[in-house]
């Protein structure tokens, strides 16, 4: 399957536009892509609005996320499953190490797409929040309260021109006394609760698949398989690069409320399921093509 690499052309056009502006040639963008203010100076500083009411630094941070490797999470009635696509950037990297999914406390997981060091820092902050809450109240912080604290923290990085916004969209979820929770936190500091969330390069196709899941009936074990399948599917657009898949879960029953990486056997099973499903789809596509040929 050959695809036109659209983003490249877009960025080329933008580049030419900017060059013209740098040269002082008046180019009026009609605003169809809403990029009127690029290069006007309003995008250089954090905490400064453009005349049409946008914070460009935050939008550029979101762009950094869009190019990050795909991460996703699925909420089930009893838990949350996290998965991330890890592009192998060097053959020298040790396989199945360099973990991307992290734990906050005991029952909360976090995965993110975008600038990885920003994510490490946010997780570090989340762990501090967890410890501080425990220190004060002698019990574990709830997921909604933690995400609210983190939302405020991330938002603060959009308000001062001495800092830049977080270049990550993080997916944070877990179980607490109230059940399972899943949130996605964006560079602007906004967060929403989700049944299934995806970020990074393959988010669009991942979201399409996530929308088809039946969240009320899903078991965490099934969610592992679906998460693997969706990561494989979302990787299709990026097929020339090798990747590893990392999956973790937290479940009130299966993991006794602890956030852990899935056991080897379940991971292998999920990978096999994902590859089978992917091959099935491809076979169907080929059959369709053949049918079309017959018609012709």
């Amino acid at each position: 399957m050959v695809r036109v690499n659209k983003p490249y052309h877009v960025s080329l056009a933008e580049f030419l536009l900017q060059m013209l502006q740098v040269l002082g040639v008046g180019v009026h963008d009609d605003g169809e892509r809403g990029r009127t203010s690029v290069g006007t100076g309003y995008d250089l500083s954090n905490s400064v609005f453009s005349p049409d009411g946008r914070n460009f630094q935050v939008e550029y941070a979101a762009k950094a996320v869009e190019n990050g490797s795909t991460s996703l999470a699925i909420k089930t009635p009893t838990g949350v499953v996290f998965a991330v696509e890890k592009i192998i950037t060097s053959k020298l990297l040790v396989p199945n190490k360099n973990n991307r999914i992290q734990t906050i406390g005991r029952s909360i997981g976090a995965v993110y797409s975008g600038l990885l060091p920003d994510g490490r820092h946010l997780v570090s902050r989340a762990r501090d929040e967890f410890n501080s809450y425990r220190g004060q109240y002698k019990e574990d912080i709830t997921v909604p309260y933690l995400i609210d604290r983190l939302g405020n923290y991330v938002q603060a990085y959009t308000c001062y021109n001495s800092v830049r916004p977080f270049g990550i969209t993080s997916i944070i979820g877990g179980v607490d006394g109230e059940g399972s929770h899943l949130y996605m936190l964006e560079p602007s500091g906004v967060y929403w609760g989700y049944k299934g969330a995806a970020a990074g390069k393959g988010r669009q196709s991942a979201k399409n698949e996530l929308e088809k899941l039946k969240y009320d009936e899903l078991t965490s074990k099934d969610a592992i398989k679906e998460a693997a399948r969706i990561i494989y599917l979302a990787h299709e657009d990026n097929k020339d690069k090798d990747f590893e898949i990392e999956i973790s879960w937290v479940d009130t029953v299966e993991t006794k409320g602890l956030h852990q990486f899935v056991p080897e056997d379940l991971l292998a099973e999920a990978k096999a399921y994902a590859q089978d499903k992917l091959n099935e789809d491809e076979d169907e596509d080929e059959e369709d093509d053949e049918d079309e040929d017959m018609d012709n």
């Binding site: 992290q102 734990t103 406390g105 005991r106 762990r127 967890f130 410890n131 425990r134």
Partner: peptide, 8 residues
């Protein structure tokens, strides 16, 4: 706390 930090 020791156990939590150690699992990270």
């Amino acid at each position: 706390d020791l156990e939590i930090d150690n699992n990270y």
